[in-house]
Amino acid sequence: MLRDIYMSRGPLAAFAAEGLFWGSFAALVPVIKAQAGLSDGDFGVVMLIAALGAVSAMWLAPRAEAKLGRWTLPVLAAVMAGAFVFPGYATNGVFLAVVMMGATIGSGSLDVAMNARISILEGRSGRPLMNLAHGIFSVAYAVSALMAGLGREIGWTPSEIFAAGVALCGLLILQMIAAPVPDPEPVSEETAKRRLPWVMLFPAGMIVLLGFMTEQATEGWSALHLERGLGAGAAEGALGPAILGMTMAIGRLSGQVIVHYWSEAVVIRVATVIAALGSAIAAWAPSLFIAYLGFGLLGIGVSVVAPMAFAWVGRMVPDDKKALAISRIAVLGYSGFFIGPPLMGFLAEGFGLPVSFTAISVLLLLVPLVLVPMVARYRP
């Protein structure tokens, strides 16, 4: 694993940068939401608006990658870091929606590019790296969520916490510059003209959608669920997203080993059932301990869903098509990354957060029952 980390250290720095900002944001949701004076439904609308910019950016990400080449990751990481300066200053919903759209544009574009670069490295090295990369994201997410929660406890403002994140991201950008992934090698004209198979991309994208919808919904609302429903304090509430991040890191790093023994289809099936069970437990937990247990199971299960889907698709397409294929399933899949919080907000407004987490549990069961068999039928 140390060899894998060294080989992929450039893209891994990009995954760490993503986790750094989204972990901080998850722990700061209660204070940012209150500072902007938003209800659950209003906050859901803000995140839905932010999602529109992200989806557009993901669709165009392959063009940005083609133009920027080996500078893709550091440039997009710098854009994301610059955008995350502003959410801490938001005092109304309109301003928060605009600045979060900027953050999701930078984050979404970087996400497509770094997954494509990891997929290229996987193809060239013959080593499974996707779970490792997403595991690094989860470690960075968990640590930053916990540190942001502690920052809240000692009186730091959101703007100060995000400023510290920007400084740390600068160091990660230096690593991206120092260890770039070479551009894809040219392919034959026949391969270049080959169209991407939507019969495989659509269900794979839906798997990613449900995985990221679960992940981001939990990231965005777990702290609020714990603080509102179970009386947790700021640090105890931040443990919700922190536990999610830590267990996702454990699941993804374990997936680095499991993928040598089980196929992607088997892993995704088992993982989504575990995640669905965890979401249901967290939804109706009578105590903080049981809720933490539920979020832990959810994290272990959902951790490998998206990485396995990306690796599965990346294995089926040539190098020069990887960025395009990942972009297309990311447009669909990462819609879930941003649809999750507004969906949770709308359901919480009408029925409460326990019902919101129960709905997530039910939706996850579509993966093993419907979507995995659809992808498995495709033969490149």
Rank of each mutant, 00 (worst) to 15 (best):
L2S: 13
S8Y: 07
P11M: 06
A16N: 12
P30H: 11
L38V: 08
L38E: 08
S39A: 06
D40W: 07
G44I: 09
L48K: 03
A50M: 05
V55Y: 09
W59D: 03
A64Y: 11
G69Q: 02
T72D: 04
A81C: 10
P87D: 08
G88M: 12
T91E: 12
G93H: 13
M101A: 14
M101G: 08
M101D: 11
L110V: 09
I118A: 09
I118S: 06
A142C: 10
A145W: 04
I154A: 01
G155A: 14
L168M: 15
Q175I: 14
P180G: 01
V181D: 07
E185Y: 10
E189M: 11
E190C: 11
K193A: 15
R194M: 13
W198G: 13
V199R: 14
G211H: 05
F212D: 11
E219M: 14
W221L: 02
S222L: 02
S222R: 05
A223Q: 11
H225N: 08
E227Q: 15
G245W: 06
G245N: 04
R252P: 00
S254T: 12
Q256W: 10
Q256C: 07
V257F: 13
V257G: 05
Y261L: 10
A265Y: 04
V270F: 12
V273P: 05
I274Y: 01
A275H: 03
A276N: 00
L277K: 07
S279F: 03
L298H: 04
G299S: 08
V304E: 09
V304T: 14
P307E: 05
G314Q: 10
A330V: 04
V331T: 15
Y334N: 13
G345E: 03
A348C: 06
E349L: 02
L353C: 06
A359D: 03
S361T: 09
L366N: 12
V367P: 00
L369R: 04
L371K: 09
R379P: 07
